[in-house]
């Protein structure tokens, strides 16, 4: 006799998943469908006469050197911000895990930045890093014009990387700490008895054991830098100077909402969506599978 718990009533099952399906449809498939439709037509701002144009919007996007510039910047931004944020978060977590004095307080405060919305982070960083009036202006008093994100593209780019990684450090920290604390103490203690120093134990025992968490965080961080960096860019640099911080998501906003070219923005967001799907797929499919300790 088979013993399997199955629903023989399909309608009941459908009724149970219907609310979720409805949510997914309303908040994901519907907007995506609309964006797809706009991407293959020319949509006037007030609606009305859309004209079918096929691939024209995508051709316009791909033949635009400024778009490729934006793609390059976005990729550099995502990798650098992710790296910086993960390195700092891992360091903080390793030290808190060693239960240094005051670690409870650190645990709490390190997480705080993640609770801030991106625009508030941007605003804070704009003030702190303002070349005339901010805390960092002290540097300019010693070396004039060394730091000026309003005029120097590199400075502006660094500024948004700092802001993004600062925002994500808290989130990464919590995950790293949880992972570190799930490592059996006996493993590190055995290492200590074999004479491995603190740093050696971190490098050879703890870090390899938290690798699955690390790869999970890489996915989350890269996705976040692609889609959630808008608030920071909008408040600190507005994509400037001279497009040095014109991330893909900011360009979509500008072309769509400021420029009122909904079709061009829709085509770009389809491209961004495919890119995120591809990145996530690659990372989960190939990288995460290989990291497996048991």
């Amino acid at each position: 006799m088979e013993k399997r718990a199955t629903f023989s009533n399909l309608w009941l099952a459908a009724a149970f998943i219907a609310p979720q399906m409805l949510l997914v449809f309303v908040f994901f498939y519907w907007p995506t469908g609309e964006a797809l439709y706009w991407a293959v037509t020319l949509e006037p701002p007030f609606g009305g006469s859309n004209e079918w144009v096929g691939w024209l919007n995508f051709e316009t996007v791909f033949s635009d050197p400024k778009y490729w510039n934006s793609v390059r910047i976005s990729i550099a931004f995502a990798s650098l911000a992710t790296m910086l944020s993960l390195v700092i978060a891992a360091m903080l977590a390793l030290f808190v895990d060693r239960r240094l004095p005051g670690h409870q307080l650190y645990k709490f405060t390190f997480f705080l930045p993640y609770a801030l919305a991106a625009p508030s982070v941007g605003l804070a960083f704009r003030f702190i890093f303002s070349p005339d009036a901010g805390f960092v202006s002290a540097i300019n008093r010693v070396w004039p014009n060394l730091w000026n994100p309003a005029l120097d593209g590199w400075d502006a780019f660094l500024l948004i990387i700092f802001a993004q990684s600062w925002k994500m450090v808290g989130y990464n920290f919590i995950f790293f700490l949880a992972a570190l604390q799930s490592i059996p103490r006996s493993v590190t203690e055995a290492g200590a008895m074999d004479g491995a120093s603190v740093l050696r134990r971190m490098w050879d025992i703890q870090l390899p054991l938290i690798a699955p968490t690390l790869f999970f965080l890489i996915v989350i961080n890269i996705t976040d830098s692609f889609v959630d960096s808008f608030g920071i860019v909008d408040v600190t640099t507005s994509g400037g100077p001279a497009r040095a911080t014109d991330l893909m998501v900011y360009k979509i906003y500008f072309d769509g909402f400021e420029g009122k070219d909904y079709s061009l923005a829709a085509a770009q967001s389809i491209v961004l969506m495919l890119l995120i799907i591809a990145l996530t797929f690659i990372q989960f499919r190939f990288i995460e599978r290989r990291i497996h300790y048991s």
Binding site: D152, G240, P241, A242, F254, D255, E258, G259
Partner: peptide, 16 residues
């Protein structure tokens, strides 16, 4: 608005 923004970006590049 977009034309203004294009020119503005170019002017930023020119001025710096």
């Amino acid at each position: 608005t977009s034309i203004r923004s294009e020119l503005r970006s170019e002017l930023e590049a020119v001025f710096t």
